[in-house]
Computed example of a mutant assay.
Amino acid sequence: MISMTKRSFNKTLLGGLTALATIAGMTFSASAADKITVGALRFTSHAPSFVAFEKGYFTDEGLEVEFKFFQAAQPMAVAIASGDVDFGITAISGGLINLADKGAIKVIGGALQEEPGIDGQIILVSKMAYEDGVTSPAQLKGRSFGITQVGSSFHYMASKIAEKEGFSTADIKLVPLQKVGALIGALKSGQIDSWTIVPHIAKGLVKSPEIFQIGVVADYIPDYQVTTVFTSTEIAENKQDIAKRFLAAFSKGADDFNAALVDKTEGEEGATAMVELIHKYVYADRPIEKAAPSIRNGAMRINKDAALNLTNVTDQLNWFKAEGLVKESITIDTLVNTNFVKTF
């Protein structure tokens, strides 16, 4: 009888300790999540972050994510440097490079890239310009070209188009309008002659009678690394585990996005489900039936495992130097930390 009581007591004690250990483990797991803020634009090309969030990939990596949305690349870079945002996915800008030179920012991966056979960024002109003979990029000399800001990716693309067509950036009138919405309005009204933008916006615009397509950026910048993943130097150097976990979750989101809308290996059901997920963040103010075509149109390749096209990023850096937008002394190592992903 006494022996039975001891066994019962031991069993009860063991069970209680196990339960306490389980509760403690659950409490630790719940409190162990690292809170991060991710900067993004409401573009289809930013979908991997949205997918990773919605499918729990960030949670699986022990990350609690909050999004902060921007309308241009350079303000996001400033937010990273100030600590308001931890990770950003957007184009390289002069502002970003200058912040890297100050030791505030590092590029740690690649995202959107132009790829042969996949619809990419489209060169557009207003109806007024088109009817005045601007029917190809070769006629952009002497014309106005919309950009968000001096030193933006739009500035880089305009310059590369001019270079290949045999004239200089100075031969184009660059018009900085800060926001994508303002650029769309200016092009429709003929206040600017030309612009270039990702396909989910461009394809919708060319359906209107006010805007015409005259070329594609891929013909001027092959393998253009359009957007990159970047973070603060503090995280890149002193909190590398968080950066690795972010990139792992982001990459899973990119795999799902590519499979559903780029490679189309998930069938129509998978594509529809992906569009519905993205619609929570992109064109959310439109009914799904109107938003879906634009979201599908924006399906450009996101680099697998966030691999970075270092060759093109180096070309971008050299262009910024040549234009006098950043210091000549800045090196690729100043801008990029290559410890996190494959480069090519």
Results as ranks from 00 to 15, higher is better:
240 Q>Y: 07
40 A>C: 01
59 T>S: 14
114 E>P: 02
254 A>G: 08
37 T>W: 05
297 N>S: 15
302 I>T: 05
198 V>P: 05
256 D>F: 04
17 L>V: 15
214 I>R: 10
19 A>L: 15
162 A>T: 08
63 L>A: 05
169 T>Y: 11
300 M>K: 02
310 L>S: 06
187 L>E: 00
175 V>P: 04
231 T>S: 08
204 G>Y: 00
130 Y>V: 01
188 K>V: 05
41 L>A: 06
182 A>K: 07
199 P>S: 06
36 I>R: 02
299 A>Q: 04
302 I>F: 12
24 A>G: 15
329 S>H: 08
52 A>C: 04
24 A>H: 12
96 L>R: 09
55 K>P: 03
239 K>D: 15
176 P>T: 09
37 T>D: 08
197 I>W: 00
312 N>C: 02
163 E>A: 14
23 I>P: 14
44 T>R: 04
14 L>V: 13
59 T>D: 15
189 S>G: 10
289 E>S: 13
72 A>M: 09
178 Q>W: 12
239 K>A: 07
274 M>R: 10
287 P>M: 09
26 M>R: 08
254 A>M: 07
324 G>K: 08
243 A>E: 05
226 V>Q: 07
15 G>P: 09
225 Q>V: 02
87 F>P: 01
165 E>C: 12
326 V>Y: 00
246 F>R: 02
112 L>K: 09
81 A>V: 03
269 E>N: 11
239 K>W: 07
276 E>L: 08
105 I>R: 00
324 G>R: 04
42 R>G: 10
331 T>I: 09
315 D>W: 10
302 I>M: 13
206 V>R: 12
249 A>T: 06
89 I>F: 01
35 K>A: 11
187 L>K: 03
143 R>S: 05
206 V>I: 15
301 R>M: 12
100 A>E: 03
91 A>Q: 09
135 T>D: 15
9 F>S: 11
8 S>T: 10
100 A>N: 04
247 L>M: 05
128 M>R: 14
180 V>S: 15
342 K>F: 00
45 S>Y: 05
131 E>V: 06
88 G>Y: 04
235 I>R: 01
37 T>P: 08
214 I>T: 08
311 T>H: 11
191 Q>V: 08
238 N>T: 07
61 E>W: 02
178 Q>P: 01
168 S>K: 14
337 N>R: 03
204 G>Q: 06
223 D>F: 09
233 T>C: 03
336 V>P: 06
106 K>P: 04
157 M>Q: 14
71 Q>A: 08
99 L>G: 07
29 S>R: 14
229 V>Q: 07
55 K>V: 00
6 K>D: 11
301 R>Q: 11
252 K>N: 08
310 L>Q: 00
76 M>K: 03
253 G>W: 01
329 S>W: 01
339 N>W: 08
69 F>Q: 09
257 F>S: 04
202 A>S: 13
218 A>Q: 14
296 R>S: 04
210 E>P: 03
217 V>N: 05
180 V>L: 15
